[in-house]
Amino acid sequence: MQSRTGARWEEFLGRLDRRLVSLGLVLFTLPPLVGKWVLPLTASSPSRALQAAVEAIPPEKLVFISSDWDAGTQAESRPQLTAIVRHLLKQKRKFVLFSVNSPTGPQIAQTTVEKAIKEEDLTEEQWKYGRDWANLGYKVANTPWIRTLSRSIQEAMKEDWQNTPISELEILKGVDRWGPDGQVAMLIDVTGSATIEYWYAYLTPTKVKLGLACTGVMAPEQYPYLDSGQLSGMLTGMKGAAEYFELIGAPSPELRVTMAGQSFAHLYIVLLILLGNVPIFLGWWQRRQR
């Protein structure tokens, strides 16, 4: 039996206008964002694993980044790509970008990387396109192409995003195979869709290390692959990006504030859940009293 107070609570909650509930979310999230509050952030183990995997790459080997996101998931994917690229720049690891998901991917990745290079105080000459990094553009990922890619990078990647033949890109000289016996030690997929499935299926046999930076919603589905070792590490949504910036010693003030905002949003939901359970708590308590 529910108590009278409990019933009144239930009625109150039932009548609570959902617009008020939404307004509450805005009011709760706003102060940390406006006041630029910062909370200490602890990196999760998948993020730390990604950092360790990147740092374990032999210096002469390349990293490939499959940049498979566009405007839709940029709130999460852009800081992820920036964080990963800045880490590679700090480590002086050469990298090559390509996209298989969206034709607008290469452009958006290009601007993100150029900005990251500037943020690391490197000039165009110090970290030169074609010598230290490259953007191979959008590729249509049908099965024969992916099979070819898994066997020979030279055959699959004919030209870069501006149609420059890859033979003219110094960075790709002699780069053909994946994995410990090849020239590419790691592939990191920064993605807003299920593109990582291609790499699980076709690149795992080459033993190349796989890293993933995905949106928050996609992350729970990827844990089995972290367990099995098919993934070397993973960044989860905006939180993953914020953690990675902390890990590489270049904390992003913007993301720290956003994370504080997200914290308060989560807190708000927790409080609402407790509020929703007040009648049930009251019922227990009154039964105890009797």
Partner: peptide, 18 residues
């Protein structure tokens, strides 16, 4: 279910970690 949800929700953000 609720306790798990609360733990995950708080564990995901700095405030919970705090």
């Amino acid at each position: 279910l609720m306790i798990t949800a609360v733990i995950v929700m708080l564990g995901q953000v700095p405030l919970g970690q705090f």
